[in-house]
Amino acid sequence: MTTKKSKSENSIVDIARVLGISPATVSRALNNNPRISEATRKRVKETAKEMGYRHNSMASSLRNRRSNIIGLIVPRISMYFHSFFITSLQRQLQAAGYNLMICQSNDSVDLEKELANTLYSARVDALVVSLTLYTKDITHFEGFLQQGIPLVFYDRVPVLGAPAYIIKGDDYRGGLLAGNHLMQAGCVHMAYISGPMSSSIYQERTRGFLDALAKQGMSMREDWVYHHELTVENAWNSLRRLFEGEQLPDGIFAANDTTAIAAVEFARERGIRIPDDLKIIGYSNDPRTAIVTPAITSIEQYPSEMADKVADTLIHALQAHPTVFHAIGEPLVCPVDLVRRMTT
């Protein structure tokens, strides 16, 4: 007794048998080989569709040792910087013949490790990673390094460096710009709300901000510096503590725009005049900062330009381009700028 083969199980051999041609001809036609006439290609594709044939990309990648898939691990897709970065990177990689497999770590180190193993097993041609806030040990990426699979860290990069491509924003300069601008605007009692110091970006932003103040002979009250995940809830908790004493800050540097927006809402609720009584600077230039009232001064990170650098690096590495784009292990630093609006 024989069972009828389901459509999904039909192979190139089955298509060849129906059409009375060789399996090699079917394979070439499905892959648009110019040696096969357009009429034959059309006939093969129509028959394949009718028979429910599905191309086995994994088997093909095993034969060719290439999947044409780039893995990407981001902390949170919902974050403006990363969502804009992903859109730009995907567009450029697709134009170069690669697909992007996007994964989200949710700032969980355990999940990041699991995703790295999954993408390694999926035989991606390269991996792009923005680390979680708490990643210190990067040994879960060693398989890529040992096998010579291009590995790019961007934005949140390993604090101690890595034998991989490193592409980062100039977070130190961003902190400098914020500190200098607040002082130029007349602030003398400044507060700082930052992310966890386990992350490279907040280490650099903090160092730049404090250096800007130190160069002008100014210092900060230790109890006016906060390091925590930059959520709306955490921002409001920090702001309540900042404004419960007798001396109040006249300037706030928020290390992301979510916190800066929360500061504007907090000031409105408390009747604090912006920018007369309080000046605020955010970070990332999220589009929301331009439409809230008052519009918020922020540090522009240029996510599209960073995506350009990542895409160029990947394409050079994957195609073994003779021109060295930039050295492995040496950070490529992307510029930032201050965008002044009504909060300063």
Rank of each mutant, 00 (worst) to 15 (best):
R288D: 09
T258W: 03
I296R: 04
I280C: 05
A263W: 02
L133S: 11
F84E: 14
Y80C: 04
S298A: 13
D155W: 07
D110H: 06
A29V: 09
A235R: 01
L318G: 11
R65G: 06
E246P: 02
H228G: 07
A255D: 13
P275D: 10
E38M: 03
N256Y: 07
L248Q: 11
I149G: 08
D257T: 10
T289K: 07
A267D: 12
R66T: 05
A311V: 13
A317T: 03
F153T: 07
G174Y: 05
E112W: 08
R221P: 05
P23E: 04
I73A: 10
R156D: 14
G174T: 09
S78G: 12
V26C: 11
E222I: 06
P331T: 09
S238P: 03
G143W: 00
S61G: 12
R270E: 09
A178P: 04
C334V: 10
A126T: 01
R241T: 14
I299K: 02
N68T: 00
N117C: 06
M306F: 07
M79S: 12
I201N: 14
H189G: 04
T118A: 13
E305A: 15
F266C: 12
R91W: 11
P303D: 15
K4D: 08
W236E: 15
K5T: 12
I280W: 11
N32Y: 14
N32D: 12
A116N: 06
R17I: 10
L176M: 13
Q216F: 12
I274L: 08
R273V: 05
D257V: 08
I138L: 02
V324G: 00
T259M: 12
Y202A: 15
G329D: 13
A317N: 01
G329H: 06
T206H: 15
F153E: 13
A262L: 00
D170V: 00
H321Q: 06
E300W: 05
V232R: 09
L127G: 01
H227N: 11
L176V: 14
E229N: 12
L230T: 08
M220I: 07
T47G: 03
L278Y: 02
S27D: 14
V159D: 06
I315K: 05
T259Y: 05
A178D: 03
E229M: 04
I315E: 07
T231H: 02
L176A: 05
A263N: 00
Y80E: 12
N33P: 01
V74A: 12
G251M: 10
F153M: 10
S304P: 01
Q203F: 10
I102E: 00
F81Y: 15
E229R: 02
